[in-house]
Simulated assay, not measured.
Amino acid sequence: MSADDVSDFIRQNRDVAKQVETHRGHWESNKHWEPRREFILRNLEQYEDDQLDHLLAMSMVWANNVFLGCRYNTELLEKVKEMSEGIEVEDAPVFKTRDEIMKQQQGR
């Protein structure tokens, strides 16, 4: 689903789009919300209504990893990476672990 596909989906499914918009955090900029919204829309069909909280949690795990560099267990990160395949994030930050920074400093 490209950005154009997301726009088309939103136009064709106004009620679903309105419902998804209610899950935007007041702290989320457009830069953060738009990819997370795409994550939710891409995966919505795989989750029943009673599983929506799980999907929203997965979207936050993905967004926290991408935008804040939060670390989670490998299995969880693999799952959200699979769920986010094809989502393009502009100007995503690049994070290094403390160990990576120390290793780089020792190599100088």
Results as ranks from 00 to 15, higher is better:
residue 16 V to M: 10
residue 71 R to V: 12
residue 27 W to D: 15
residue 79 K to C: 04
residue 8 D to H: 10
residue 85 E to K: 11
residue 75 E to R: 09
residue 104 Q to H: 08
residue 27 W to L: 10
residue 9 F to R: 01
residue 23 H to S: 09
residue 104 Q to R: 11
residue 61 V to S: 05
residue 29 S to W: 03
residue 78 E to F: 02
residue 60 M to E: 14
residue 24 R to N: 11
residue 58 M to Q: 14
residue 77 L to D: 00
residue 99 D to I: 04
residue 31 K to W: 13
residue 24 R to S: 07
residue 7 S to E: 15
residue 14 R to K: 14
residue 105 Q to G: 03
residue 100 E to D: 10
residue 50 D to F: 11
residue 32 H to C: 07
residue 104 Q to K: 13
residue 45 E to H: 10
residue 7 S to T: 13
residue 88 E to V: 11
residue 104 Q to L: 09
residue 13 N to K: 01
residue 85 E to S: 10
residue 16 V to W: 01
residue 98 R to V: 12
residue 91 D to F: 11
residue 96 K to R: 12
residue 41 L to T: 03
residue 47 Y to L: 03
residue 37 R to I: 06
residue 73 N to T: 05
residue 48 E to W: 02
residue 91 D to Y: 06
residue 48 E to A: 12
residue 54 H to I: 09
residue 90 E to T: 05
residue 66 V to H: 01
residue 64 N to R: 08
residue 2 S to V: 00
residue 4 D to P: 00
residue 55 L to R: 02
residue 75 E to I: 07
residue 96 K to D: 11
residue 66 V to G: 00
residue 52 L to I: 14
residue 27 W to V: 08
residue 10 I to K: 07
residue 28 E to D: 12
residue 42 R to F: 05
residue 44 L to K: 01
residue 88 E to I: 13
residue 4 D to I: 03
residue 89 V to P: 05
residue 84 S to R: 01
residue 97 T to G: 07
residue 68 L to N: 15
residue 41 L to A: 06
residue 102 M to F: 15
residue 22 T to L: 14
residue 52 L to V: 07
residue 38 E to P: 00
residue 63 A to V: 00
residue 104 Q to D: 15
residue 54 H to P: 00
